[in-house]
Design a protein around this nucleic acid. Sequence first.
DNA 1: CCTATAGTGGACCACACGGTCCACTACACG
DNA 2: CGTGTAGTGGACCGTGTGGTCCACTATAGG
Lengths: 189, 189
Amino acid sequence: MARPREFDPDKALKDIQKAFWMNGYHGTSMHDLEDATGLRKQSLYREFGNKDSMYDRAMELYMTRDVAELAGVLQGPGDARTRFRHFLDVVLDAPRRGDRSGCFLCNSAIDRAHEDAATAESARAGIDGTLALFEQVLSASPPYDTDIESRRAEARVLVSGYLGLRVMIRASTPTATLDAIADTLVSTI
Amino acid sequence: MARPREFDPDKALKDIQKAFWMNGYHGTSMHDLEDATGLRKQSLYREFGNKDSMYDRAMELYMTRDVAELAGVLQGPGDARTRFRHFLDVVLDAPRRGDRSGCFLCNSAIDRAHEDAATAESARAGIDGTLALFEQVLSASPPYDTDIESRRAEARVLVSGYLGLRVMIRASTPTATLDAIADTLVSTI
DNA sequence: CCTATAGTGGACCACACGGTCCACTACACG
DNA sequence: CGTGTAGTGGACCGTGTGGTCCACTATAGG
């Protein structure tokens, strides 16, 4: 048999995702990915194909890991307001730690969607899924459990506010302002 | 004396802005700018300096023309809700016409802010200014004219929702969904 | 030992990038 | 006519890009 792989492909993908997340598709070169992973490009190409597919994998990881983690937070205990409070706390934890990479989906929608139809579709679907998720969480608490129209309306406010918050994280908005917006969003529930 | 300039520098700048607006800093090459303006790069360099300063000028035009135009809409007749209704109508007119370029400020925050401190500062300042503007418009109508805290809270909801809406425009969200979100945002006033 | 795979280093490719320079042709005015 | 500027076309530059290929050294199992 053959020599076994020495690096961890999952770890490498995480590093790739981190680089794309912070600097976008255009802002990240293959050299950057080598530095981020500690691997040479031959290993990267063999493992992941070309740069485009590395970006696709990074996006996929965002959907299956990061979005799923956030969704998990929203499925936690308590009423809708408590869950969203916790959810936004987790989201705002990143900028509090100095991590201003924002939302991979939003970033890709702005950075790459206009030139890649598949990315545009992923972004659209991701945002659509977020709206549906918010609606589902709201349906756990009155009056949203019975009043479908108010549930939809509140989900719309929350999803647009959430995305705006993600942009503001990227735009160096002070954490105090971010906290205030999160508080206000939660208070509308 | 000398031969007079044949092209219109303002028109050229508008074309440059349009290209950057749609494709971002990294996604727009000098060749793209030549195509967009119909000018050769020698003329562009002589008129505007280098690519960075062209981007800066495009951003400046966004602040002095496009943001000012939107601000003008918000200063129109009627109460706060009527003005915001009109404001979001104007904003959503672009995607209805097929223009998905979104918000220059949001785009630059995500595309360029992480590698250019001046851009980051512009984005932050622009968003801050939007928040202040929204507060000012709200202060024209009760109960926001007297209740400062509710005015601030509502301005926060509107600004985050507005920015989120701009991202969704970019992310190919159907116009029907955009309209629904705009309606809901206005109804919170 | 043999073979198949993992991984490295470096050469190499065509191309696009931002940017400069130069020669040349307009075209205004004094 | 002379001069100064506008504008074009094309050559050119150094650098970086994504991507390929090859030679070489490990290292596993049969």
